[in-house]
Write a protein that binds this DNA or RNA. Structure first.
Lengths: 155, 155
DNA sequence: ATAGATGCAAACTCTTTGCAGGTCG
DNA sequence: CGACCTGCAAAGAGTTTGCATCTAT
């Protein structure tokens, strides 16, 4: 690897600070997760990584997804269909379509008041919060058409 | 079973309307889930049910948890630590302590505006929403003491 | 050189399923 | 009786781990 872009350099530094290496597998796994907003499962990431690295093992994909999540480079979320990964680390909510199962990103409102309210009622320290919406997405509401949505990209 | 209380009768009716029976196992499994707000996993429910029905099988516990969830008698939620069940079917949010892992119930605010906002931004039909809070609970903030909290009961 | 990472296969955990027998109405 | 349900054991799915080998620095 002679050329590296700025993002890769920053990532490289982040990992190095923890004694971790930016291997080809790790880089491609991260690229795959970042290239979609479909909140992929480990199995899906594996399938896509294999297109570029046919000899990669599923264990490597799992290990790296966990490692990258531990480093905060991506996030992990439990879902009825299994653990899903998300390369979008900006604060955002999710909308799950009960018809097709797709998970859409919804920009989070800057809602400090919500946390404050819970904190004052419970006496707990609220560090974070996330809202999950459930309903029917545009594509599923009117059979045959998509709708202007939240900014989804690929499948 | 000669005596049944009102709740049991109502449940019985709900199940019968679907061709389901209120067997001893099913009833006790439900009682166990309802007797705690610890959002138990199937394994924990199994352990507790076995105290009252030593010959119950884990398969029966799984089958009934799924059945009861399908009937809306209890709810199911995905969690990093596995699927958890909740006998509290009233609308409520959750607070997960990042230190001890406990999940506390938080009364949901009647927030129709939140749904409306997402609906208008996305064009989606929002049927439901739930917020997950993360932070440090009272017990974990000050080592050695519990705190006045949201209404938790047993462990 | 050496700590870290990989590929492979085996192991593990959690959950579901097939089936023969039991139970409820 | 017939439909539903149970216990048991086996199967499945998803994920993790041990280990010899390889690779990045």
């Amino acid at each position: 690897m002679i050329t590296k872009n700025v993002a890769a350099l920053a990532l490289d530094a982040t990992l190095h600070a923890r004694g971790l290496r930016l291997t080809r597998q790790r880089r491609i796994i991260l690229e795959v997760v970042r290239a979609t907003d479909a909140h992929p499962t480990a199995a899906l990431v594996y399938r896509r990584v294999r297109r570029r690295l046919p000899r990669v093992s599923l264990a490597t994909v799992y290990r790296n997804l966990r490692t990258l999540a531990a480093e905060g480079v991506l996030t992990e979320r439990a879902d009825p269909s299994g653990v899903r990964f998300d390369g979008n680390t900006a604060s955002h909510d999710h909308f799950t379509c009960v018809a097709c199962g797709r998970i859409y990103d919804v920009p989070a409102r800057a809602d400090r008041a919500v946390r404050a309210r819970v904190a004052s009622r419970t006496g707990f320290e609220v560090l974070n919060h996330r809202t999950e919406f459930y309903g029917r997405c545009g594509a599923c509401r009117r059979p045959g058409g998509r709708s202007p949505v939240t900014g989804q990209r690929r499948k």
